[in-house]
Amino acid sequence: MPKKVLVVEDSTAMRSLIASTVEELKGYETVEAGNGFEALKALPAHRFDLIITDINMPDINGLEIIHFVKNNEDYKNIPMIVVTTEQGDEDRKKGLALGATEYITKPFDPEQLKAVVKRVTRG
């Protein structure tokens, strides 16, 4: 089965950049969500192997998504990568404390993202 990755990011351009970077990896497919609502709707519709989420989003923020996923019996084992800014120290720490596996900092090197994705979804 190809691995399915949910990409939650409100900037269209950033989202498609992340998605296409992940799809360059063999055996990975992405589903894109432009906000928390879309992410919540996508979760029961697929079996995700990884969730990549931005933190600063209107309405439901990335931390709330992590909290939701990590406290839900059906999804809590899905690894999560948070995408933060260089200044987003506090938010990054909170994300990891809530159960995110890894973080990457914007702007990121596509190869670095690919490496993190592979590492997190292994096994």
Binding site: G36, L40, I60, E64, F68, K70, N72
Partner: peptide, 15 residues
């Protein structure tokens, strides 16, 4: 200030 979805959701109970 915050919009937090609570972790349980199902077709019966909603969200």
């Amino acid at each position: 200030i915050s919009t937090l979805p609570s972790p349980g959701m199902s077709p019966e109970t909603g969200i």
